[in-house]
């Protein structure tokens, strides 16, 4: 018993000791679960086509990724963080505080957020205003005055007479999700700005404006269905009356089961998202710690692989995975940023 104990302790000590000194020879990537599918494809191809080890990619969510990324400089911190939104100024400040000063921002492409329904249900034609009225916690008073009331709408027909008389039942991501952030910002806020008195609030009382526009109803009309988008697809198949909110790549993969609702007269198609006419789309990014380039092997080559024409281009393999490529002008800018490693402050 003693021997076992001793060998166990010795093994542990030797390994922890080794760990503290061993140089990390692989790239460590953290961040958004939306960028994860794209980032991993690049990582895998990069590992197969070069002599560098395959990077490790963790899916931590955009906010969680930033927190790890901004912990400091050194091999125990990640080199790259993926994000489904642009970095916040508070995060830049946090990074700077911990000595992470030079950050390179690389735009990856676009992702559309779809409101999908089962193929057995009719296709909805929504406007952002409809979406806001159906899902907000507080909505403008039905008597036409400039006051807010608790959301009284029960069916889509109550919101807009042209819509079917189906119960409002929307399955969407929880507050920790970047998809949710983007959805409230693009769809909800876009809809609530259509009311002049709420739009006026933006200058007068920004916090109240945010609370009104970003507040989702909690009376069962909006159901938090977890981060797993496949689960939402399955629930839609089981319940054709419901609508689900998720990224375009899941719609593309499940076209035999679900369809995307029309928003502002635009179908969520590859082309409509890439040319910007589909209103609920956002850009995806990743951020690189410049101080790690040259220290951790392979970062530069990974960036080159990610921003290469065969990955990011219009016919690249990322597009096959459901990412919407950016325009030529934007792509040129990204290539330039990567080639010269332009940091955020220098841009």
């Amino acid at each position: 018993m003693k021997k076992v104990l001793l060998t166990g302790a010795a093994l542990l000590a030797s390994v922890t000791g080794m760990n503290a000194h061993a140089e990390r020879d692989y790239i460590s990537i953290v961040g958004s679960s939306t960028v994860y599918p794209f980032s991993t494809v690049v990582a895998e191809r990069f590992g197969k086509s070069t002599n560098f080890p395959t990077p490790k990619v963790e899916s931590t969510g955009s906010g969680g990724g930033m927190k790890l990324f901004c912990q400091g400089v050194g091999e125990s911190t990640p080199d790259i963080t993926n994000s489904s939104r642009a970095i916040k100024s508070s995060e830049i400040a946090l990074c700077a505080e911990n000595g992470v000063k030079d950050i390179v921002e690389v735009m990856v492409g676009y992702d559309g957020i779809v409101l999908a329904g089962s193929n057995e249900a009719p296709k909805y034609e929504l406007t952002r205003k409809d979406i806001f009225l159906a899902l907000a916690k507080m909505v403008p008073n039905t008597d036409g005055t400039d006051t807010l009331i608790e959301n009284p709408y029960k069916t889509w027909k109550d919101v807009n007479p042209t819509l079917p008389a189906k119960k409002i039942e929307v399955l969407g991501p929880p507050p920790t999700s970047g998809t949710r952030d983007a959805f409230v910002e693009l769809a909800m806020e876009g809809g609530c700005k259509k009311f002049p008195f709420i739009a006026a609030m933006k200058d007068a009382d920004k916090n109240k404006f945010k609370a009104v526009c970003h507040g989702l109803r909690e009376d069962g009309g909006y159901i938090e269905a977890g981060e797993n988008d496949n689960l939402i697809v399955q629930k839609l198949v089981a319940n054709p009356d419901a609508i689900g909110i998720f990224g375009y790549s899941f719609l593309e993969q499940n076209e035999d089961k679900v369809h995307g609702s029309v928003v502002e007269g635009q179908e969520p198609t590859f082309d409509a998202i890439s040319d910007g006419s589909y209103p609920v789309s956002r850009s995806l990014y990743f951020y690189v710690k410049k101080a790690h380039i040259g220290v951790i092997p392979g970062i530069k080559e990974y960036l080159a692989e990610f921003t290469s024409e065969k990955a990011m281009g219009e016919d690249g393999y990322l597009a096959d995975k459901g990412m919407i490529p950016m325009t030529d002008a934007e792509y040129k800018k990204v290539v330039d940023t990567v080639a010269n490693l332009k940091t955020i402050s220098a841009q």
Binding site: V15, M18, N19, A22, Y26, S28, V30, Y36, T40, A43, E44, G47, P53, T54, K56, V57, E58, S59, T60
Partner: peptide, 17 residues
């Protein structure tokens, strides 16, 4: 502790990802 990660290479020892 970061084990929810995409790891392609088969780990060889207890301090590989």
């Amino acid at each position: 502790i970061g084990m929810i990660a995409f790891v392609v290479d088969v780990p060889g020892f207890i301090n590989d990802p």
